[in-house]
Design a protein around this nucleic acid. Structure first.
Lengths: 328, 328
DNA sequence: ATGAAAGCGCTAACAA
DNA sequence: TTGTTAGCGCTTTCAT
């Protein structure tokens, strides 16, 4: 067992007293072999510490046993959770995960996809801003897109529209009449879906919405933009994701604005940190575990699976500040 | 280019008017081929969209082009950063990263290592609690351990001792005389190293240290343990990692204990969140990027690379609360 | 500098 | 049910 790749199927065949082909069958399709021989082969393989050579197998079967996972930023807890879920689901179907972190760089996404597509059995692409046109190059490699519906390709979509609508109703119920919305990247499908939902529900509930432009969907950018939200006169702030909401929270705290006493705050994704800050963040919990599993199971198909987020009410939302409401 | 793996070296050979062996040489060791033929081969390969079949190449060379990275928890920002760094460094040397998340499960670590060791060119193991005995099975596969020195194996060690000592001096300079220390897992090399450093510096500086036991190195466990730290009468709290420090911060905030007015707080790792909370956390920044790069470059060697963390002073530490100091 | 030939370890027809 | 045979696509001697 100290030598890494010395025991071949021939050694096993010899020890079991059968021919190499039989060993191959016994190990890969046991039902096609007599129980007795199967037992002998298995024993021999175990004694010798036989491990099949994946390259040799792959050369003939055309399969590698690997699935590529392309993410924009593994240090983003949302993607980290997704990747973890994919990894566990992949293991259950004997696939290994080849991770690529593109650093939010679109050119790198395309390069990685092109390069890897030949060496994997499938790809799971979590790059939200990938252009449709660019992935024609993927050719025949089974690919599933996460959080971006793609025509004639498998995808798993995390819908937040309903939950975002609920959030608005929740705020309206607290007497809020004016919301500042910090949106995500316009090129992101999820960002568009969410903002549209907020707009729609704005009409229904009569809560006015002020859009606040944020340079990037990050803590820092939201920190910088938070003051605009305050000066808009809104009594509630909603952000595209939790990182941004956290940024707003930090800025409000620095400005001495009480949450939720003066301003209520809603995030999205329910990253671990959301529950940890004070006050704990009201947010939209996304079914990332299910999404990861779905992505793996979708490999090879062209279906779209829709999963929905759910509003999680915590301490960062409360009754509207009457001073601010009246003060307009 | 729509077919994934149809163009072989034979097609290229035919188009370039040379023999297959020459194509192979021209592509893998260009210097062993006449410039003219090389150019013809390269042109033919490009025209045809030739992509070498990794399985076939691996079968003969014994190399896979993959390196396995085994982490306890990819959703932990510390490991996520490390993995990202490894991934980028690996790409520079044409290696792909096979990610395994063991979910802090030691048995899973061993299983993954055994299984993968045959199918990768190397392994980078970030499991801090792995037993030495268990990795004999790794056999000849080049392996480097991160954050745990291992005899006769390559490793990259992130030393925090000096920075931890500095942190204590920093606190002593602020007049703190009593520190509560929330340690990490005893089985973790890093935890032991850090605690020893705190002990040593405790003698030097005369700052008394109360050890607070924490069930796990997590936000939640630290949140639960924080009250003990308060009731110990300490004016400063230091935690094994930032997640724990963040937990303490949340609890202190819930208890109405001011940071740093009443209690100063120091974390470790400098995860992104540390700079984002209010007050921003004084912590020890670990050179994770360098560590990831070192891990990749160490593959195949048996060296140990030592990297040191540095104290980052932010807003969570300040002058000792004289009330509490006197009150004992 | 290039051609020819022999496999790497395995699977999958096809026979028996 | 098991044996036999022919490669998968590439690299690498060994000749030339």
């Amino acid at each position: 067992m100290s030598e890494s790749q010395r025991v071949t199927i021939l050694d096993v065949a010899e020890r079991a007293g059968v021919h190499p082909g039989t060993v191959s069958r016994a190990l890969s399709r046991p039902e096609k072999v007599a129980p007795a021989t199967r037992a002998r082969v298995e024993a021999a393989a175990k004694d010798l510490g036989f491990v099949p050579n994946k390259a040799a197998r792959g050369l003939i079967t055309g399969r590698t046993g690997n699935v590529a996972v392309i993410v924009p930023d593994i240090t983003n807890p949302f993607f980290a959770s997704l990747v973890r879920s994919v990894e566990h689901a992949a293991r259950d179907v004997d696939l290994q995960v080849l991770l690529v972190d593109t650093g939010e760089n679109r050119a790198e996404e395309v390069r990685a996809a092109d390069e890897l597509s030949h060496d994997v059995d499938g790809m799971i692409v979590m790059a939200p801003r990938r252009l449709h046109r660019e992935m024609e190059v993927l050719g025949a490699t089974p690919t599933v897109f996460v959080n971006r519906p793609v025509q004639s390709r498998a995808s798993v979509v995390l819908r937040s529209a309903d939950a975002a609508g609920e959030a608005l109703q929740h705020l309206a119920g607290f007497g809020h009449r004016h919301l500042a919305y910090l949106g995500g990247p316009r090129s992101s499908w999820a960002a568009v879906e969410r903002r549209d939902a907020v707009r729609r529900m704005s009409r229904t509930t009569g809560v006015a919405v002020t859009d606040v432009d944020v340079a990037a969907p990050t803590f820092e950018a939201a920190y910088d933009a938070a003051e605009q939200a305050v000066s808009s006169g809104a009594t509630a702030v909603m952000a595209f994701n939790d990182q941004m909401a956290l940024g707003v929270l930090a800025r409000l705290s620095a400005l001495g604005v009480g949450v939720p006493e003066q301003i209520s705050l809603v995030g999205c994704d329910d990253v671990p940190m959301a529950a940890m800050v004070a006050p704990a963040l009201t947010t939209i919990a996304m079914p990332v575990v299910e999404a990861g599993e779905a992505a793996v199971h979708l490999l090879g198909s062209a279906e779209t699976v829709q999963l929905s987020g759910a509003l999680v009410i915590r301490a960062s939302t409360g009754p509207a500040d009457q001073t601010r409401t009246g003060g307009r």
